[in-house]
């Protein structure tokens, strides 16, 4: 239960951070990316604030034998740069510049029900779901039907 509350609280604080920083307003995001328009550097300050804090947490990781609650450290392996990484970032960047939303702000502000936010977020979830389906049924066909189900 306490673990779920931590997740809920982390999501809430994350969302409040997005709201306070202005990142749930696509206008501020687009005005950061559109450097030839009325440029708004706020997004850069959000990144500095977030990385400034989170970087300190990563300094603690090697000094802690294990996380406070989980059994062991389980962080993504550091791999090289590959084509899916870059192709994915190109697609993501293009969609971000078009709509002014990345996933966090979209999911935070969709509850306000503004039609553009709802349309963007529904399409984004369709993209995430569609990718998961594609991965399950086509990309990993050598592992028949086991992309997550039976564990």
């Amino acid at each position: 239960m306490k673990r779920l509350l931590l997740s809920l609280g982390a999501g809430f604080v994350f969302g409040v951070g997005l709201l306070i920083s202005g990142m749930t307003q696509p206008a501020k995001v687009v005005n950061f990316l559109d450097v030839l328009g009325a440029w708004d550097p706020s997004l850069g300050f959000v990144m500095v604030g977030a990385i400034g804090v989170h970087f300190l947490a990563y300094l603690l990781v090697p000094r802690l034998a294990k996380p406070f609650w989980a059994k062991s450290w389980d962080l993504p392996p550091k791999k090289g740069i590959d084509a899916p990484l870059i192709l994915g970032a190109v697609l993501f960047g293009a969609g971000w510049g078009l709509g002014g939303y990345c996933p966090g702000p979209a999911l935070t502000s969709v509850v306000a029900g503004a039609p553009p936010t709802v349309l963007f977020t529904a399409s984004m979830l369709a993209g995430i779901g569609g990718y998961a389906l594609w991965e399950r049924f086509w990309a990993n066909r050598e592992v028949p039907g086991m992309a997550g189900g039976a564990l």
């Binding site: 931590l6 609280g9 982390a10 997005l18 300050f45 604030g49 977030a50 989170h54 996380p67």
Partner: peptide
């Protein structure tokens, strides 16, 4: 400030739950 809150949230998930 908002960014720092985002960093705080990410740090809690990292340090408690990896």
């Amino acid at each position: 400030v908002g960014g720092a809150l985002i960093g705080l949230s990410a740090s809690a998930l990292l340090l408690f739950e990896s």
